[in-house]
Design a protein around this nucleic acid. Structure first.
Lengths: 145, 145
DNA sequence: CATTTGTCTATCATATAAGTAGACTTGGCG
DNA sequence: CGCCAAGTCTACTTATATGATAGACAAATG
């Protein structure tokens, strides 16, 4: 289970993806449309900005907007920023690895299985981007037709 | 991330899988070998027994043992018993579904992606069993040679 | 310079996780 | 029968994470 925080962050990004190219979007606007507590959302957006997923503009006419095209940011990246590790165990995490006390990692059966699980999950989350979070009809891959 | 509790449960099952067919195993034995706080382990094993994953025998010569052959119990089943949902969001959980307030599930982009992720994860966890948790050399699939 | 908007710090409430203690029950065995 | 070895159950305790809120501060626009 991902935290509410991560969920809120992903929803907000989906909204910003839909508004991409239309200039800054108000925090209050996102909060209302996506039904997210505004002060909580503030901290999430700030975090995403600090990790270069978002950019912002202050003052009148300001707001938040995606730092890059929606397709450029994977869901895995976002989840790692807000929610931390994607793997089910610290000892199989690629980005948040911590050594497993009390077990020989080389022979650990649990570790072996969890590594496989991680790969399967990541295969999806690395490929999907915040473009895929846009609500409504499924976005077609136009490609280079 | 799965909880320590789930992790302990899986490790314990891995140990019991290795001892399968050799009669009851003491809680204290599992706790020592797998370095799990004994009282904590007690409650986990009891929970697994209540869900028919384990059986136990009381009194002298008693202990815990698998209710079925190691291959018969999937990791998904165990994780659901101890740790709850496998999906990343309640609204895409197959076994612990709760309706998503504040969002139209049909059109929710996040939900769509999380359902795909869940499928990828489950494909592994439904297939792997506690047989796969046995430490040491990778178990070969002998099959019906 | 005043208003709008994002930024930052601090705090709080609650829930969950993790672990501990001790009494109770069951069953084997002499 | 009666002891002892095991699992069973109840009740806490403590630590940490989560979710949320309030308010002061800083920057940019017009």
């Amino acid at each position: 289970m991902i935290s509410k925080k991560t969920q809120y962050g992903l929803k907000a990004l989906g909204y910003l993806a839909a508004e991409y190219g239309k200039g800054p979007v108000l925090i209050a606007d996102i909060a209302e449309k996506k039904k997210i507590p505004i002060k909580f959302l503030e901290s999430i957006l700030l975090l995403l900005k600090q990790h270069s997923v978002l950019e912002s503009k202050k003052g009148k006419g300001g707001g938040y907007f995606l730092a890059n095209a929606p397709k450029k940011t994977s869901l895995a990246a976002v989840i790692r920023i807000i929610g931390g590790p994607i793997a089910m165990l610290p000892c199989v995490s690629l980005n948040f690895y911590t050594k497993c006390e009390d077990c020989d990692e080389v022979n650990c059966g649990l570790r072996r299985v969890m590594a496989i699980t991680r790969d399967a999950t990541l295969k999806v989350l690395e490929k999907k981007t915040i473009q895929d979070l846009v609500d409504g009809c499924v976005e077609m891959e136009i490609g280079t037709i």
